[in-house]
Simulated scan of single mutants.
Amino acid sequence: MALAGRIRSSLPLVTKLLRTDAIAAAQRSTPQEALLRSTFANSEFSRNFATATGKKEEKTKVPLSMFGGTGNYASALYLSAVKANALDKVESELLVLVEASKKSPVFSQFIKDLSVPAEIRVAAINDICDQAKFSDITKNFLVILAGYGRLRFIESIAKRFAELTMAHKGELKAIVTSVIPLPPQEEKELQETLQEIIGQGKKVKLEQKIDPSIWGGLVVEFGQKVFDMSIKTRARQMERYLREPINIGNI
């Protein structure tokens, strides 16, 4: 909450920067591309990323294979955070930023607006990170995203980063969807059942979701498996069964 408050307190600067003369910023003697290359080259994140991808010094590996742009960013940040022993801190800082973007329309618009010059985005993120007292790894990472116009993907990156941290800790998230929250005893029994299915290699971490549209029952997702025990799905299966023609010869 304290970090979120610091981020919100810095939003007036974002508003001010958004009103800065974009043409004047674009006409500065230092090209934006040079600024971004300099920011990336001098950042701790960049140095760690380069080390992590070097053939001679590659020791740390991502626990899950990530694909796509957000997966690549999350993997690179993971490698940097592991080397600095700052996984939990980086994860919490990303979540704080995501929550701040959800609560502030101004900040949300700022990270999505590609018309804002890169220099302004970088300056704003630098100030926000300083105000929130973010770690250098998180700050440098966000600066890179700001410079290349990728801040709009921060929520997706944060989710994929969380998947990596869970895998690092030997945890497996199971998403349980129900019409109403599960009572504590039922939640405990379900977790124990899933733990038996998965085995002792990983620890199950339950996440509950509420969705009245399933009518009742449960939908459990973990790993690549989905157990759909919802009343809605059962009703549809029964409906399809009743619509199938009856083969009198088999009666």
Rank of each mutant, 00 (worst) to 15 (best):
D21Y: 11
F110A: 02
I154K: 00
R240C: 11
G170P: 01
R236I: 11
I7K: 06
N247I: 06
Q27A: 15
Q200P: 02
L172R: 01
K61H: 10
A84K: 06
K139C: 11
S108H: 09
S156R: 14
H168A: 10
A52N: 07
R6T: 13
A24H: 11
S92Y: 04
E196M: 08
Y148W: 07
Q27D: 15
P181V: 02
I120F: 08
K202W: 13
S108W: 09
G199Q: 11
L11I: 15
S10C: 11
P31I: 09
A4E: 15
R160T: 14
I246K: 05
S80I: 06
Q32N: 12
E33V: 00
I7N: 11
F227H: 04
S104R: 00
I23L: 10
V106E: 15
F45H: 13
A86Y: 01
I210G: 02
K159I: 12
I144S: 04
F67Q: 12
N42C: 10
F40L: 12
E171T: 01
V179I: 09
K225S: 13
D88S: 13
K209G: 01
K209V: 11
S65K: 11
A2Y: 11
A34E: 15
V179R: 03
M1H: 10
I214N: 09
L242W: 08
D127E: 13
F222I: 03
V220Y: 08
D88L: 09
Q131W: 05
A235C: 05
I251W: 07
R240V: 14
S65T: 08
L13R: 12
F107M: 06
G199Y: 14
A100W: 02
I246G: 01
L17V: 15
T138M: 06
K56Q: 12
Q32F: 09
A100Q: 02
L95R: 07
P31R: 07
Y73A: 06
C129K: 08
T193M: 04
R234C: 03
R152T: 07
M66K: 07
T30G: 00
